[in-house]
Amino acid sequence: MLEARLEQANLLKKVVDSITNLVQDCNFDCNDSGIALQAMDNSHVALVAMMLRSDAFSPFRCDRNIALGINLTSLTKVLRCAQNEDILTLKAEDAPDVVNLVFESAESDRLSEYDIKLMDIDQEHLGIPDTEYAASITMPSAEFQRITRDLLALSESVSIECTKEGVKFSCQGDIGSGSVTLRSHTNVDNEDRNVSIDLSEPVSLMFSLKYLSNFCKASGLSSRVKLSLSNEVPLLVEYALPSNSFLRFYLAPKIGD
């Protein structure tokens, strides 16, 4: 059986909020290492990969592999019943029909309990190769969100060019064009504001801004985001979560025929 207790319901609320625009139904794969999720969007252009390691929970107990097939709209409805600061416990039997969620207030004696009916989801799993990326950029997640939002006002697509000069996000649209260039930067007062660019060879790729702006819904989960790029392969956008856990998004590029 599964029993997983999170100190703050807020973490799961934010994770689900940030993927619900991309994915409708998905399996939460539980085993002794934690709770993992991998799902593609309907058009098979973007992929979400989440890992909540067992260390992020206290306690965490799961003695065998359990797949919880959950409709994210249903999960969102139930998670709205939790206060952000509530303690959240997920429970399921070994071959479950439902997942049980318990919300406890640390301050009062309130205890809420909900069951969500599970679905049989035949999910296509993709093998993601270990990649040595040619460029990786770590920057404030709010900055990446702002750039994405600003350029989306002008265009559907963004070109991301990374050279030793810096990283340039640029777009061309009907009303004109725009670009934002970032250079490596160390902020002495606040390292959350740092921009670090790690480059082994120049990269230039084009991506859909609609998907990138969807990924940026995860900005509330982490003050930092890491973009990893290599020519002609999918972009990796990664938000670090507590206890070495992560929320990753992959986006296939636009490539000339």
Binding site: M40, S43, H44, V45, A46, L47, H125, L126, G127, I128, P129, S157, M206, S208, V233, P234, Y250, A252, P253, K254, I255, G256, D257
Partner: peptide, 14 residues
């Protein structure tokens, strides 16, 4: 003209 690729082209079966 650049065309949106699908992930299956890059990521195979596990």
């Amino acid at each position: 003209v650049k065309t949106q690729q699908m992930l299956g082209k890059f990521f195979g079966a596990p």
